Amino acid sequence: MDQSPLIEIGLPIALAIIMVGIGLSLTKEDFAVQARSPWATIVGLVAQLILVPLVGIGVTMIFDLSPLLALGVILVAASPGGATSNLITYLARGSVALSIILTAIASIAVILTLPLWFDIGARVIPGATDYDVTVPLGQTFGLLLGVILIPVALGMLLRARKPALADRIERFVGVVGLVVLVALIVGIVLGERDRIVDLVATVGPAVIVLNVAVIILGGLVAWVCRLGRAEQIAIAVELGIKNTTLTMLIAFTVIGIEVVGLAAAVYSIVMYITTFVLVWGGRRLMRTAPLPASATPAGLAAP
């Protein structure tokens, strides 16, 4: 399908800016800290890259979604955490350092894992093969290399060379992300306006269950693995707050079917609603535990 220049050009540029923001949040010391004690990172990545996509596939089976909507749900589940997860983790008094590292590493890892999970989903969802919908590995790798890996590296380089400038730019990145997300959702609504109510009513319950399930999964897995409360919060948030901008970029530019991107649009709304519960629950959980130094970004006081 033909796409507007806003989607073909503006969306990748906007996502690249958002990923620069993640890079601006990273320093070599962040990686050094996690390298000295990598267990929390390993747990978070396994949950993010393996368990959450499996939950996504299970949700599509439970709700018996149409093939295209089901593929959209799997695409959301296979996507990494979003940059917003770092802010939500901070507000919920979780481990921000862990959240940033998980976002960065998962964003790079999905260059390979996302097409794999989408292909698995296309094979197991009844009727999906009739649509010949795929996420080509080569095209996706090139796209994500340009909008994720390189921008994150540039952000880290700027943070290392010009920390004061990096701080100022980082505040701007969050605004860009929100504006792009709202524009995408509006675009999907307009593009599917003749059947948007029916589609949302169909996929809405599935994405609500997916969001709540992966949040609970994150906290439970971290608890079973004997991680601290701050790490439990960080992983729960990371699994629940997705990079839906990336998901819609793939749906629009690689797959080229708006219906596939609808699940990401609805999930975006749902995850920002559950964010309030995450922040409230995290703060309650941390009342009886000291706030680790790593949970507060440099220059910010605990809220």
Rank of each mutant, 00 (worst) to 15 (best):
A295L: 02
A40V: 02
N243Y: 07
I101E: 01
V260K: 04
M286T: 05
L51R: 08
V52A: 10
L262N: 03
G72E: 09
V135C: 07
Q48I: 12
A213Y: 09
T129N: 15
V175Q: 02
W280Y: 11
G191M: 13
A77V: 04
L190H: 12
R226S: 14
G174I: 05
L6G: 07
I208Q: 00
A206H: 04
F31C: 06
V189D: 10
A206W: 00
L65D: 09
V46S: 15
I42F: 12
D167F: 10
R171G: 11
A128L: 09
A206P: 05
A40E: 06
A47D: 12
I22P: 05
P115D: 06
L181C: 07
D30N: 12
L26P: 00
F172G: 11
R284S: 10
I17W: 11
M19H: 11
I9Q: 12
V33R: 12
R226T: 13
L65Y: 06
R159G: 05
V260F: 03
N86D: 07
R161L: 12
I74M: 08
T41P: 02
W39G: 14
A289N: 10
A92G: 08
A230G: 08
L199Q: 11
V207A: 04
V76K: 03
R168H: 07
G23C: 00
G127L: 10
T296G: 05
K162W: 12
V96F: 02
L165P: 01
I241D: 02
L178R: 11
G299I: 13
A70S: 15
S107Q: 10
V55N: 05
G256F: 08
G138I: 13
G138M: 07
L71D: 00
A122Y: 03
L75C: 12
T27F: 11
G282F: 09
T245L: 03
F172E: 01
I125P: 01
A122P: 00
W223R: 14
L227K: 05
M19V: 13
I269R: 04
T245W: 00
I13F: 14
A264P: 00
L246V: 14
L190K: 15
V189H: 09
E231C: 01
S79M: 02
V43D: 06
M271C: 01
M271G: 01
R284V: 10
G81P: 05
G94A: 05
F276T: 14
V176T: 02
Y267S: 12
